[in-house]
Design a protein around this nucleic acid. Structure first.
Length: 705
DNA sequence: GAGTTTGAAACT
DNA sequence: CAGTTTCAAACTC
C-alpha cells in the first residue's frame, strides 16, 4: 500500500498541478482518494518516465550549460563508475526510504550516510522546521535531499510540514532555474537552501563545489566513505539529481496533493522498503537518464541507458555539430553507442569499409585496406591522397559509395546483356555467389597476379571461378596481401582503375549530355594496341569505353569512343553505319539495347554510357594537343561501349575499373613507358560523381598500406 | 568448347 | 628502359 501510495503520488503529480493541494488536508483527501486505486497504482508504475521528459526538454534548452561538466562526466569509464554508483546509491537509498517511515527512523544503514542524514532530517522535518542553522552543513543538505526527494515522491512530505512545502515552492523556483540550465545544479540547491536556510549557504556552496568531485573518476574512493560529510555530499547529489529529474514537474505540481502524497511513515517497514525499492527503481532510471544526459553533454560517450536517452535533446544538440556523422554512426551502430559519434576517422572509415564490404560480397581487401588506410603513409598512399585530391574527392566515403554504386550498376547491367560468353558467365556468376567475383580462368598465375581479374579487382576468387591452383582465397589471405604489396611496391597504383574520368574532358564537352560520355574519361596509361585497331576489348581504352588519347601508343586506332588523333564518329554516323560494320554491329546493338534498358540506372550511375543510352555516339576525344592523327577516320562503326557498358551491360569490363595495373607514374607500355600523372580532375562538384566513377576502388588503393 | 588472337603484365 | 615472355581475356570457329 505504501508503495502504491508513493507511486501514486508520483503519478498524480502529473495529473494534478494545483499547489494548494499540498496542504495536509488535501493530501489526506488525495490519499484517500487515490491511494487505494489500482488504476493509479498502475499509472504510477508508468509515471516515473513521464516526469523526466520535461527535464530533457529543459535540458535541450540550454545544453551548453553542461559544457562545464564534461570534464567530470566525459570519461566512459567514469560513466560506468557513475552508473554503478547510482546503483549503489540506490541500494543505499533504498534503506533510506524507510526513513520516511517513522518505524524505520531508527533503522540504521551502516552504509548509508544519506540514510542517516535523511532520517535525521526527517526528524527535523517533523518539526516542520527547516531552520537548522545550528546544525552542521550536512544537516542543511538534508533539506535539499528531502525537498528533492519529495518532489520525486520518494519522500515523506507529510512529515515535512508546511514550512518544507514552502521550501519546495522555493525549490521549484530553483528547479526552474535548473531547467533554464542554471548550469550548475548545485546552484539550484543552493538557492533552495538559501530560501530555506541561508545559514547553510556557504557550506552548501562549498559542498556543492565538491559535489562534482564525486563525479570525478577519482571519486569512487570517496564514495566508499560514509562519514557525515560524504553522506552529505551524497545527499546533495541525490538532491540535485532529483531536482533535475523532477524539478520541472514539481514546479507545477509540487504543491499538489499528489506531490505530497506521502509514503506514510506509519506503514510497515518491509512494505516500505519494497516500495522504496520499487520507487527508487524509477528514480534510478531518472537518475541514470540524467547522468547520461550529462555524459551526453560531455560528448555523448556513454551508451544510452534507454532508447529515450539517445533521443535526449543533448544528443540532438550534439548532433547539431556532427549531424551527418552522427546519423551515420547511429545507423551503423544502431544508435546504441554514442561513442560512435566521436570515433577517429579511422574508425569511421572502417565502418564505412565494413559496410561497403558487406554490401559487396567477396571484396577481398576492403577490410584490411580500410584499416590499412591509416598505416604510415607510403608512396602509394600519398599517391592515393593526391589522387583523391586531384579528383575532387573529399571523402573516402563517397569513393566507397561511388564504387559500390558502380558495382551495383555493373551487376545490374550484367543481367541485361547476356550476349557474350563472358556475359553469360557474368550472369551466371551474378545469380551465383557474388557480384564481386570476376570468374577468372587463371591457370598459371595462381590468381596472384594482375592477370587475374579477381585479384586485380581486389576480390577473392570464388566458386564461379575456373581458376586452377588458386591462391586468391581467404585461406591464403596472407599470401594475397603480400603479393599485393609486392605488386604495389612495383606500381603503387597497380590496383587503381585504368580508366579515369577527367574534368578536363568533361569541360570539353559541349553539352551536359556529354559530360557522361566515354570521352569524358581516359585511360590513364593509354593502350598499346597494334592489331585490334582499338575496336575490340583487347584494347583497354575501348574496353573501358573511353576514347584513345595522346597517351596511347596504339596503331591504327579506330576507337569509336575517340581516336587518339581526335577524330570521332558522330552519332549519326554510328547510327547509319552500325549495320554496315559487321564486327561491331552486334555489340552496338547490344549496347544500345542495354542503354535503353538501363537508362534509369544510368542516371544513378552517372556512367558515360548514359550518353549511349541516349544513342549518342561515343564522342571522340579531341585533345587540344592531339598530335597523333595517323589513324584516321576509318572506322565509323558504332561499337559497343564496353568499358562503361559494364554499368549497363554485363560487366566484363567492369573489373577493369577495379582492376589496377594502370600506373600514372610509370606506364608499362612496352612501346613507350612514360611517367604520366593521373589526369587531374579539377572538375566541379557537378561532375564529381562522374569523376568518382572512375576512381579506383577504395579497397584496392588503400589496401596493403 | 577448343583454339587463336591480342595486349597487358611480368620478367630480364 | 627496352625487349621478351607470360598470361588470361577476348575472340573466332
Amino acid at each position: 500500500m505504501v508503495g502504491e501510495r508513493c507511486e501514486s503520488s508520483r503519478g498524480e503529480r502529473e495529473v494534478m498541478g494545483t499547489p494548494e493541494r499540498s496542504k495536509n488536508s488535501q493530501i489526506a483527501t488525495s490519499i484517500a482518494k487515490f491511494e487505494d486505486s489500482p488504476v493509479f497504482s498502475f499509472l504510477n508504475n508508468l509515471s516515473p518516465i513521464k516526469p523526466v521528459k520535461p527535464v530533457h526538454i529543459s535540458q535541450t534548452i540550454n545544453p551548453l550549460s553542461f559544457a562545464s561538466l564534461p570534464s567530470v562526466f566525459s570519461s566512459p569509464h567514469l560513466a560506468s563508475l557513475r552508473e554503478s554508483r547510482f546503483l549503489r546509491r540506490h541500494s543505499l537509498s533504498d534503506p533510506s526510504k524507510p526513513e520516511f517511515s517513522s518505524d524505520d527512523a531508527n533503522k540504521v544503514d551502516p552504509n548509508m550516510g544519506v540514510t542517516m542524514n535523511l532520517d535525521e532530517h526527517k526528524e527535523s522535518n517533523t518539526d516542520a522546521n527547516c531552520e537548522n542553522a545550528g546544525e552542521p552543513p550536512y544537516v542543511c543538505s538534508k533539506l535539499v535531499v528531502e525537498f528533492t526527494e519529495t518532489l520525486s515522491c520518494e519522500m515523506d512530505i507529510v512529515n515535512s510540514g508546511l514550512g518544507c512545502l514552502e521550501t519546495k515552492q522555493v525549490a521549484c523556483t530553483s528547479s526552474a532555474l535548473v531547467d533554464q540550465r542554471s548550469v550548475n545544479m548545485s546552484e539550484a540547491n543552493v538557492e533552495v537552501l538559501g530560501n530555506t536556510d541561508g545559514n547553510c549557504w556557504d557550506s552548501l556552496i562549498a559542498d556543492a563545489s565538491d559535489l562534482f568531485i564525486f563525479e570525478s573518476p577519482n571519486a569512487k574512493a570517496c564514495n566508499e566513505s560514509v562519514d557525515p560529510a560524504t553522506a552529505f555530499y551524497r545527499s546533495i547529489r541525490n538532491a540535485i539529481q532529483n531536482v533535475q529529474s523532477f524539478g520541472a514537474a514539481a514546479c507545477g505540481e509540487h504543491g499538489n496533493a499528489a506531490a505530497n502524497m506521502p509514503c506514510q511513515p506509519e506503514e510497515g517497514t518491509g512494505v516500505i522498503e519494497n516500495m522504496s525499492l520499487q520507487n527508487f527503481s524509477g528514480v534510478c532510471r531518472g537518475m541514470k537518464r540524467r547522468s547520461l544526459v550529462f555524459e551526453m553533454a560531455g560528448g555523448c560517450r556513454k551508451n544510452m541507458e534507454d532508447g529515450s536517452a539517445c533521443d535526449s535533446p543533448l544528443l540532438l544538440t550534439n548532433s547539431d555539430g556532427n549531424a551527418s556523422l552522427d546519423k551515420q554512426i547511429a545507423r551503423t551502430k544502431t544508435g546504441s553507442d554514442c561513442s560512435g559519434l566521436l570515433p577517429g576517422i579511422g574508425l569511421h572509415l572502417n565502418a564505412l569499409a565494413a559496410t561497403h564490404e558487406s554490401s559487396t560480397s567477396g571484396r577481398l581487401l576492403i577490410g584490411s585496406s580500410s584499416s590499412a588506410n591509416f598505416h604510415p603513409p607510403t608512396t602509394s598512399q600519398d599517391l592515393l591522397s593526391s589522387y583523391l585530391l586531384e579528383s575532387g574527392i573529399d571523402t573516402f566515403e563517397s569513393l566507397l559509395l561511388e564504387d559500390h554504386s558502380r558495382e551495383s550498376g555493373y551487376i545490374a547491367n550484367e543481367d541485361i546483356n547476356p550476349s557474350s560468353p563472358k556475359k553469360r558467365r557474368r550472369k551466371s556468376e551474378q545469380s551465383g555467389d557474388g557480384e564481386s567475383c570476376k570468374r577468372c580462368n587463371c591457370k598459371k598465375s595462381k590468381c596472384l597476379k594482375l592477370y587475374c581479374e579477381c585479384f586485380a579487382a581486389g576480390v577473392y576468387c570464388m566458386e564461379p571461378c575456373a581458376c586452377i591452383d588458386c591462391f586468391n582465397k581467404p585461406v591464403h589471405e596472407d599470401t594475397v596481401l603480400a603479393t599485393r604489396k609486392q605488386i604495389e611496391s612495383r606500381n603503387p597504383l597497380a590496383f587503381a582503375p585504368k580508366v579515369i574520368r577527367t574534368s578536363d574532358s568533361v569541360s570539353e564537352m559541349i553539352g551536359d549530355d556529354f559530360a557522361n560520355t566515354p570521352a569524358s574519361a581516359r585511360h590513364k596509361r593509354g593502350c598499346n594496341c597494334k592489331k585490334s585497331g582499338c575496336l575490340k576489348k583487347y584494347c583497354e581504352c575501348y574496353q573501358g569505353g573511353v576514347g584513345c588519347s595522346i597517351n596511347c601508343r596504339c596503331e591504327g586506332c579506330k576507337n569509336a569512343f575517340g581516336r587518339k588523333d581526335g577524330s570521332c564518329a558522330s552519332a549519326a554516323e554510328h547510327e547509319d553505319v552500325e549495320d554496315e560494320n559487321d564486327t561491331t554491329e552486334k555489340a552496338a546493338l547490344d549496347s544500345r539495347s542495354i542503354y535503353k534498358a538501363s537508362i534509369h540506372d544510368e542516371l544513378d550511375q552517372s556512367a558515360p554510357s548514359q550518353s549511349f543510352s541516349k544513342k549518342r555516339p561515343p564522342r571522340a576525344y579531341v585533345p587540344p594537343t592531339s598530335s597523333y592523327s595517323g589513324f584516321g577516320n576509318s572506322s565509323l562503326a558504332f561499337p559497343p561501349p564496353p568499358k562503361w557498358r559494364p554499368h549497363l551491360e554485363e560487366g566484363d569490363e567492369m573489373p577493369n575499373f577495379l582492376t589496377g595495373g594502370g600506373s600514372p607514374i610509370k606506364a608499362s607500355s612496352p612501346n613507350r613507358k612514360r611517367v604520366t600523372p593521373p589526369q587531374t580532375l579539377t572538375g566541379l562538384r557537378s561532375s564529381r560523381k562522374l569523376i568518382l566513377q572512375s576512381i579506383p576502388s577504395f579497397p584496392s588503393l588503400a589496401s596493403n598500406r
